[in-house]
Every structure is written in structure tokens, then in C-alpha cells.
Amino acid sequence: MIAPLAAPSPSAPAKAPYPLVSVRNLCKHYALRAGWGFGHSVFKAVENVSFDIMPNETLGLVGESGSGKSTIGRAVTMLNPPTSGVVAFEGVDLAEQSGRDMRRMRQRMQMVFQDPYSALNPRMTVGDYVAEPLVIHGLCKTAAERRDLVAELFSKVGLDPRFMARFPHQFSGGQRQRICIARAIGVRPSFIVADEPIAALDVSIQAQVVNLLQDLQEEMGLAYLFISHDLRMVRYLCHRVAVIWKGRIVELAPSAALYGNPLHPYTRRLLSAVPVPDPALERARTRLPEVAALPDDPLAHELVEAEPGHYVARAALS
């Protein structure tokens, strides 16, 4: 299986002595009931997923809808704990932490959700929303200090501090996402799970939010798990990319290697579906056919190193 996967691309930060986040054999299963309560089955949303994220690194997680991307993001942050497997943050197994210890850990790891409006509390001003984690973690001693810090966070994400007294419905989608980012970075985390943070935004606003994430990474030394189905943005933002298919990672490589030489048929099919901004080229393109499911043999799902730092499911190499 995967033994350290810390193989960043040439554009990635210098290699650190240990991973910031280490995930090993993560599984998330859901029990399903048949009609009228008779019988039951198990839905395996995520099965034996392993990867590392180094400090200051952005790992992209891509795949079609329903492949298990968001499930992994929630399991890594323990919002929806995994059924089995290990999630270690800064060398600490999160499953073994008490409620009090986990609260302290959450200050170091935050999450930005896909739908900013659902993440915001419509009954709270956005200033109070951003200030809430500061109160929970005791990072401000006085109300004036808290107000000044929230104003600084608003400025950092490109919003006018005078908007602090407004409510979520008074903002656009891009502004709401900036508010959610301000809340996430307010507690000075070292790791953020960004779960499709640009999916609901216009193209121009997407670029602004992605550039904001990059600027914050450089300024604060953040590491990201960037979950997205937008392969163009993933190529632009991420140092390494993991491709997930039916709950399993089938390919993991530095961004340049994965886009330049995709080894798994599913990865090639995903890349063939990316639209090209040229009508003539788009009409001439050939879409790759549906990929057959992997066999049930566990060895077929095992990731092997086909090239330096480039891992792919064993079945794709046979």
C-alpha cells in the first residue's frame, strides 16, 4: 500500500520532515434498511483511502458527483467520523482524542463548505458569525479586541469592514464565500478542507476566490485539501492531485505528471470531458467510453508507484 506519499511537484513547497495530515485506510460505511424494516445492507461510500498532505501543500481531490469527495473531507475533519482507518493530524490520531482535546485540535483545522449561504446563520450578522470561533477558542479578551480582529479579517479577504453589521442575505455568493473563508482563517489554522468552495460561483468570482486562497496560503503557511470537480482550477491551484472513483483513490500524482501523463482510464476519461474554449476543437474531440468497474480483488485496488511520486491502481497497469 502507500507508505509515505510525500512527493510534491517541483512547484510545491520544500519537503517537510513529516506530513501535516496523514490518512491511512480510511473507510466510511452507511447502513441501509430495506422496505418495512426487513433486511439491511451496507453502502461503502469510501473504501481504503490513504494519502498525506504536507505543510504548505495543496492536495486536490477530484472525481464525479457521488464519488465520495465530500465524505472524505468531512471524515478528515471528524465532522462525520470514519467507520475505520486512521486520520492523524500533526502526528496525533484524531479518533483517540476526547471532546475537549478535539475542540483544541479544531482550532488548527478548519473547513470551508460548498454552499456559503447554507453555512451562514441567517439570524446572525456576518460580523458575529466571523467572531464566533474567536469567542469559542478564547482568542480575544475584550469586545473591542474582537471587533478589531474581525475588521482585520474582513479586510484580508477583500471585504469592507463596514459590512460587519449586515446579514447574509445582503451579500452576493462570492462575498458570502469570502465571509466563510474569513471565519475559517480567524483562528489561525494550519490546515483547511475546502469542499468545492467555488462550485456555486461565477467564473470571474471563482478566479478571485482561488487567488485569495493562494495568497492566504503564502501569507499564513496553510495546507489545503481542495475538493473540486473543476479540473482546470485544480490544475492551477494544486501541487498534487488524487483522483477518486466509486469511493477509492485510483490515481495520485504531482499535478504536472497527472495532467501530462494520466495512467488510469478513469482519469483519462475525466480529462477528456474538460471543455475546450474553441468550438472547432470541441466538436472534433472524441469522448472516451465509460470505464469498466474494477474487480473485487483487493489487490486490484492497491496503489503502486508507476513513476516516481506517481501512484495508480494496480489493475490499471495490467
Rank of each mutant, 00 (worst) to 15 (best):
M1V: 12
A3K: 14
P10L: 07
S11P: 00
A12L: 09
A14D: 11
A16G: 12
P17E: 15
P17I: 05
S22M: 03
C27D: 13
A31I: 03
R33D: 13
H40V: 08
A45Q: 13
L59N: 04
G63I: 02
G66Q: 11
K69Y: 02
L79S: 08
P81E: 08
E90V: 01
A95W: 10
S98F: 00
R100D: 11
Q110N: 09
Y117E: 13
V126Q: 08
P133D: 06
L139Y: 00
K156G: 01
K156Y: 01
A165I: 04
C180T: 11
A184K: 08
V193K: 10
D195P: 12
I198Y: 05
L201K: 06
V203Q: 08
M220D: 07
Y224V: 02
S228H: 12
R235D: 11
V241M: 05
V243P: 04
W245D: 10
G247N: 11
G247F: 07
I249W: 06
A253C: 08
L263M: 08
A273H: 00
A273N: 03
A273C: 15
D278V: 03
A280E: 14
L294H: 11
D297I: 01
L299C: 06
G309C: 08
V312E: 11
R314V: 04
L317G: 14
